[in-house]
C-alpha cells in the first residue's frame, strides 16, 4: 500500500513539474513570436482602430505589464480553471478543448489500437520467420511507411478514395449541413475511415519494426532453444514465449508514440478537415489565438505524460523482474 501511495505521489509531482516547464516554454515562445494578440483579435477591423484604442485594449488585457507578471496572472487563472476565451471559435477555451478532444480521442484511440494490434502481429510474424518472403514484404512495407510523411499519405488517400473512387467523403466528421443529432453512427464511421487509416499506417510501421527485432532476439534465446528441446511447436513457441516477451517493448513503443500520434493527428485532421484537437491547433496558430494555443499545448503534455505513466505501470505489472527489483529498491530506501 505504502509503495503505491509513494508511486502515485512521485508521479504527480513529476507531472506537475513537466506541466510547469512546458507552460513556461510555451508562454515564452508565444511572447517571442510575431503574433500580436490584439491584431489577431481585431482581424479585419484593424484599420478602424486608432492608436488610443489600441493602448486602451493593451492596458485592459494587461499586455503593458512585464512578461513575468503576465505569466503569473495567466498561470493563476489557469489553476482556478479559467482557461480563457477563444477568439477563433468564439467560445470558452475549456468548451472548445473538451468538444474537440472528444472527436479527436475517437480518432486517435482507434488509430492507436489498430496500429498497436496490426503492427504487433506483423512484427511477431516477421520476427518468427526472419529472411522469409513474408518478412521481406513486411519489412519493405514498414521501411517505406516509416519514411512517409502522414500528410502525404493523407492527401494520397484523399485523391484515390474520395476524389477518384468517391468511396469516402472529402471532409469533416459528418455530412455537411446535417444537425449533429441526425448523424448516424455509420455516417460517423464513414467519415472517420480515411483519417483513421492515414493515422494508423505510421504507427503500424513503428511497432512492427520494433517488435520484429525483439522477436528475432527472442527466437535465438536460450529459453526458446529449451522450449524446442521440449518438443514445442512453432505456434506454441510464438504464442507462449515470443508474444509474451515481445509485448513489453511493444507496450513501451506504443505508449511512447502518443506524442507522434498527437502530431500525426494535427496533420491528418487538417488534410481531412476533421474537427478535432489537431485542426484546432492549426487554427489557433494561424489566427494567433494565444489562450487556445497554450491550453492545447498543456493538454497535449498532459496526454503524453499520462501515456508514459501508464506504460511504466504496465511495465511493472507485466515484467516480474522489474516489480521485484523496485520492491528491493524500496526495501533499501526504507
Amino acid at each position: 500500500m505504502r509503495s503505491w501511495k509513494a508511486f502515485v505521489l512521485v508521479r504527480l509531482i513529476r507531472l506537475a513539474l513537466v506541466l510547469a516547464g512546458v507552460a513556461v516554454v510555451a508562454f515564452v515562445l508565444v511572447k517571442l513570436s510575431p503574433v500580436d494578440p490584439i491584431d489577431a483579435y481585431l482581424g479585419p477591423d484593424i484599420a478602424r482602430v486608432g492608436p488610443e484604442q489600441r493602448a486602451l485594449i493593451t492596458e485592459k488585457w494587461g499586455l503593458d505589464q512585464p512578461a513575468g507578471v503576465q505569466f503569473v496572472k495567466w498561470l493563476s487563472s489557469m489553476l482556478t480553471g479559467d482557461l480563457g476565451w477563444s477568439v477563433t471559435y468564439n467560445a470558452s477555451v475549456a468548451d472548445v478543448i473538451s468538444e474537440r478532444f472528444r472527436s479527436s480521442i475517437v480518432l486517435m484511440g482507434l488509430a492507436w489500437a489498430f496500429s498497436g494490434f496490426i503492427g504487433f502481429s506483423l512484427g511477431i510474424w516477421a520476427g518468427a520467420n526472419p529472411g522469409s518472403w513474408s518478412d521481406r514484404i513486411i519489412r519493405l512495407y514498414a521501411y517505406i511507411l516509416a519514411a512517409t510523411p502522414t500528410f502525404w499519405i493523407a492527401i494520397l488517400l484523399l485523391i484515390v478514395f474520395s476524389v477518384g473512387l468517391r468511396w469516402t467523403p472529402v471532409c469533416c466528421a459528418a455530412p455537411i449541413g446535417m444537425l449533429p443529432e441526425d448523424v448516424t453512427l455509420l455516417q460517423r464511421l464513414h467519415h472517420l475511415l480515411l483519417p483513421l487509416i492515414a493515422l494508423s499506417i505510421l504507427g503500424i510501421a513503428q511497432i512492427a519494426l520494433h517488435t520484429r527485432v525483439k522477436m528475432i532476439e527472442i527466437m535465438q534465446s536460450d529459453f526458446v532453444l529449451y522450449a524446442r528441446a521440449q518438443g514445442a511447436t512453432m505456434l506454441d513457441i510464438v504464442l507462449h514465449h515470443g508474444a509474451r516477451n515481445a509485448a513489453l517493448p511493444a507496450i513501451t513503443v506504443l505508449f511512447a508514440s502518443l506524442g507522434e500520434l498527437f502530431g500525426g493527428s494535427i496533420l491528418a485532421e487538417t488534410v481531412f478537415s476533421y474537427p478535432g484537437l489537431g485542426s484546432a491547433t492549426i487554427e489557433a496558430g494561424i489566427r494567433g489565438d494565444v489562450p487556445l494555443l497554450l491550453a492545447i499545448t498543456l493538454t497535449a503534455t498532459l496526454f503524453v505524460s499520462v501515456g508514459n505513466t501508464i506504460a511504466d505501470i504496465l511495465y511493472h505489472v507485466a515484467d516480474p523482474r522489474i516489480s521485484s527489483a523496485s520492491e528491493a529498491w524500496q526495501g533499501i530506501a526504507e
Partner: peptide, 22 residues
C-alpha cells in the same frame, strides 16, 4: 521432431533457459 521432449530430454545448463516471464 517427434522424439524431442517426449523421449529425448535436454537439461540445459543455466537459468537463462527458463522463460523470464512465465
Amino acid at each position: 521432431a517427434a522424439l524431442r521432449g517426449s523421449r529425448i530430454a535436454l537439461i540445459p545448463q543455466s537459468i537463462g533457459h527458463l522463460d523470464p516471464l512465465a
